[in-house]
Design a protein around this nucleic acid. Sequence first.
DNA 1: CCAAAAGTGTTTTAGCTACACCCATGA
DNA 2: TCATGGGTGTAGCTAAAACACTTTTGG
Lengths: 228, 228
Amino acid sequence: MKSDFLKHIAYDSVVFGYSDGQLKVLIMKYMNTNLYALPGGFVKMKENLNDAVVKGLKERTGLNNIFLEQFYTFGDLKRYKPEIMETILKANGIKLRRNDWMMDRFISIAYYALINFHEVDPKPGFLSESCDWYDINKLPKLMLDHKMIITKALQTLRESLGKKPVGKNLLPKFFTMNDLQKTYEVILGEKMHRGTFQRKMLNMGILVRHEKKFSGGAHKAPYLYSFD
Amino acid sequence: MKSDFLKHIAYDSVVFGYSDGQLKVLIMKYMNTNLYALPGGFVKMKENLNDAVVKGLKERTGLNNIFLEQFYTFGDLKRYKPEIMETILKANGIKLRRNDWMMDRFISIAYYALINFHEVDPKPGFLSESCDWYDINKLPKLMLDHKMIITKALQTLRESLGKKPVGKNLLPKFFTMNDLQKTYEVILGEKMHRGTFQRKMLNMGILVRHEKKFSGGAHKAPYLYSFD
DNA sequence: CCAAAAGTGTTTTAGCTACACCCATGA
DNA sequence: TCATGGGTGTAGCTAAAACACTTTTGG
């Protein structure tokens, strides 16, 4: 019954990546079940909340310096479905003890993270058989309120598009203006005007232009850019 | 040791009011101590997080339909100072039991609220000897990280000034354009241009103009406005 | 009639948008 | 040389800002 973790407290992270013109989210699947969920975890007694999340993401992605932001804490009673945790534990031959802390009600602090898709090879964790990218428009059915958590994360991401250099965290070091625009479009879910977009980005003064790349396409080779 | 509340979980609320050209915050003082703190509380086992906060605010202010928004969850280890809770309990003759849940580490979900100053007569709660308004620039020394919580609340409030009808919740039903401008100025901490402000507000289309009031001043009597 | 504050018309500025033209490149 | 996509100049529109003039009121 005693554990090293704080009772009733969990975190969930919505990890966004961009690849192939699509916005992706990391989703894990519990072993021997059909339950899909956001990667998350618990907080140790002697550990900062934020540190716990960073540590958890490091385990899933191998990355250390991740752009990470807390956006909401979900505390509805509706989230409390002990039978789901029971299913997971049973499916993996783990004995249920009466009053096990994992069977209690949890409040979840939700974070979203932005990472460079191509730097990551996702690793499943304890009790999970996979940890994979899903197109944000083709998510599997998720357990509990995780779908709502993703929706709210996306909403927050959209609002911060104008305030923070979001592209910096989703794109590789060097990219074309078109890459950047595609990223914005897929986050906002709408097309933008090419000329306007370019001008706006350049006027923000956070992009550095480098020498041209060899595009391999039958057209003018675009500049490469990087942040700051 | 068993209690009706979720262990490790607390909430704190930053209640803003506007009066006399100043932005005010509700602060309570623990009985028989010199400890000042934000009004807060705990969450019952069978209670939604948001409902707990609404209930707590109702007790402090008597109001039911309060504009309320969650803005951050504070989970650093630095917040864990059991000696403070010990001081409070001892000062009021409450026996400490070993492993008392109130002596544990807490994570706090923070909310801010906007209310009409003149509709409220703040009431102290359990263990507190007062619950009073403080000018946001003349706060007493607050316990734990409550000062930081207020700072972050104000920052969030500033950002939402442009998005939400903040004045609606801080002002009485009828007010002059000048009242509204003063409110904005005190939140943002900067003067604004009179003509520009008036036009911007009217163009938002959320204000209704009523008949003039008798100002009592040696000048043109201003219109009264209300929201929606 | 004067001072003070409110309401409003006008001009200027800044930013965003759309269009269009030119350029570089590989096929 | 042609099709494709990239960079940029320009004109039009809109919103915000600054200024100043007029109006109303109590003293």
